[in-house]
Design a protein around this nucleic acid. Structure first.
Lengths: 217, 217, 217, 217
DNA sequence: AATGAATGAGCATTCATTCAT
DNA sequence: TATGAATGAATGCTCATTCAT
């Protein structure tokens, strides 16, 4: 299943890049500008309270132009997710490729999770808050990249079990969700907090508990 | 004039209480019916896509009647949260009152968390999905009952640390968030899953990992 | 202030007494209370911005009770006009009855016009502003008591013409409108002015100009 | 104050015309079309009973388009008044500029007043009836152009007094209101009358009486 | 007569989307 | 491609009126 997903993503990336490369740079730039503007606007006002006109203004284009790049307001939200998730998973795989130790892998995942979202607050807000504003989106979200992400964690846990580093009495898929949930909650708290603090160090706290929690010793 | 008013008010109050006593059921029922209907509608369509008319229809009342019990559509969402959170925390405190062992307390919290949400899917959807659709609400949410909830967990962890059952090198407030995040993620997954499975057993999985993770041994 | 109102009501009741006597006192009182409350509310907020509930509250009765005395919100406005106009014309006729000199009659009319409206600001506001908010009402208004009022003035002018006191080259009906318009405008100005000054003395100014204007000399 | 207003109006007109000229004709036309349609609709149904949709329909545009030109239904009413009053006063000043004799000036004012309103019944209805439907508007109305108008009349009367043509025992500002009130009442009567007759000749009747009334002789 | 909870028609305004230029 | 004026469907909320008690 993991293999499948991997292939899937690869194909997807290829398809994407083909598309992207064949377009003049300005096209990509404008598309990017819209996504960036939308991320900011959605983060500030929320998806439902954001007007397409706000996005267009922030992207310094006319309202109608948005529709040359996206079919609808909904699609913009999707694209934000797609683009970020794609980059995220792709970078995750790259970073995990040279690691063997499951513990190190989980550490890398946690660090990546928090450093990524911690470095782009707007994106984080959209991920933690806006993407969850509708069951409709959540299902698609869940079905798409998110499942891939969970699978990477799950496989790592399974590897650890095979290597007798991790307990065998835990279910890898559930443990993966627990791991993800813990990381996720800290991001959400970070976003909603009035205090501004670095997110990255939080990853350690999760690891401290989770790794001991699933340790075979 | 003062005397008159006084009598007036007395009569008025009496009238009120008579009325209220003879009617409490219908008033309460109607309010409840609206909340129940709204929970269902919000769970199905999402808050922003739900019309007040939908709620009224499901509650079998006229549109305008909704506004005799709630000031706005927003207030309905708030009330759903308030009522559920209040009941949740109140029951939590009751159930924890007779427990001494921090481990048992955390177990009880986890079980309660999952059994409560697991027994009312609509409410769970609203909690997991709709309440997070806006930073605005999330902040209020966070500021209100949610903080109480986290505090209960945090204190329990602190107790465990004092009793030398739990590790001292973890920060209770962060550990509390991790615990909550883990439980929460399983609820979200349960909601979004196409498969229908009981939520309650998931609590054990969280406990298995978390308790070992924070154990002093 | 309480005393004033009381006298006011007494006068009013006397005028109405034919109708009124056949009804139990409480009925009349409640009807009056509603009209008084409505006059105040309409004067403050304007007819269209006034709620029936506001009127009921000010009259210290239940919303529904209003409809035991008036068929609709519109009818309340009508009744305010009818009652006041009736009282006004009736008093006018009484006061003019013992006068022979057309000049004295016009003087009496002008004084009455300004003293009446000048002594009840709320009523004046309703008369000058609210009653004119709809052509629909204006036509009925025009058709009803207002025509009577104009006729009294017109006849007086005609008398003066016959007595060779007033010019014959003016059309009585138009002169009557001019006289009325002049008086009316001063009332409107008085109402809208931020300054508070007595209205009654204004009548003299109108008379000074108008009487000379129509004088035969 | 009169001088100031004059300059003010001039500047305003210049600014207006610059703007207007730089816009494509269609923009101006659409704005005008809305105002014209609104005047008609308000005249027929009254402001509060008119729907924005009615105006849009009559102007042959979509409902939403109204809001590209006006911020609210209220603003439409204001604009009708502003535009008409501006044109009215501006034309009045022009026409009075070459006249010296105060009597001639008053004659011109009266004629202009009646010929203007007499030539656009819908506008007249809005002016006489709708604009007076709320104290709120009346105050603004009174504060704005209306005061200018009264001042023009007042100054003319003062000139006449200085020239010893008019009586010195009348207060110019009150006389101005009387003159205005007389003209105004005839307009209102004309509007409400079921008979259709020319309004303009009425001006003479007012002049006949008023000029004799304030004459020094 | 009196109440006031319930009704439901009614409407200003917004904003995603389209399309003529 | 890009524009932005125009569209018109969509909806939360109000409030005059009714009616069961």
């Amino acid at each position: 299943m993991n293999g499948d997903s991997f292939i899937c993503i690869c194909i997807f990336n290829m398809a994407r890049s083909t598309q992207t490369l064949s377009r003049p740079r300005s096209v990509t730039d404008k598309r990017s500008a819209i996504l960036k503007a939308a991320t900011k606007v959605f983060a500030q006002k929320g998806f439902f309270n954001s007007k397409v006109a706000d996005i267009a203004e922030k992207a310094k284009i006319a309202d109608g132009t948005v529709y040359l790049y996206f079919k609808s307001k909904d699609e913009i939200l999707h694209s934000i997710f797609d683009r970020a998730m794609e980059a995220f998973i792709s970078e995750g795989k790259t970073q995990l490729a040279d690691l063997k130790d499951p513990i190190e892998k989980l550490r890398r995942i946690a660090e990546l999770h928090h450093s990524r979202l911690g470095s782009d607050r707007n994106l984080a807000v959209v991920f933690q808050v806006e993407l969850r504003g509708s069951t409709k989106f959540m299902r698609e979200f869940s079905a798409a990249g998110f499942a891939d992400y969970l699978n990477i964690i799950r496989k790592t846990i399974e590897e650890g079990q095979k290597a007798k580093i991790f307990r065998k009495d835990i279910k890898p898929i559930i443990a993966a969700k627990i791991f993800y949930g813990a990381l996720d909650e800290l991001v959400t708290n970070w976003i909603l907090s009035k205090k501004r603090y670095p997110l990255a160090p939080m990853a350690d706290e999760v690891l401290k508990i989770f790794l001991k929690g699933i340790s075979a010793k």
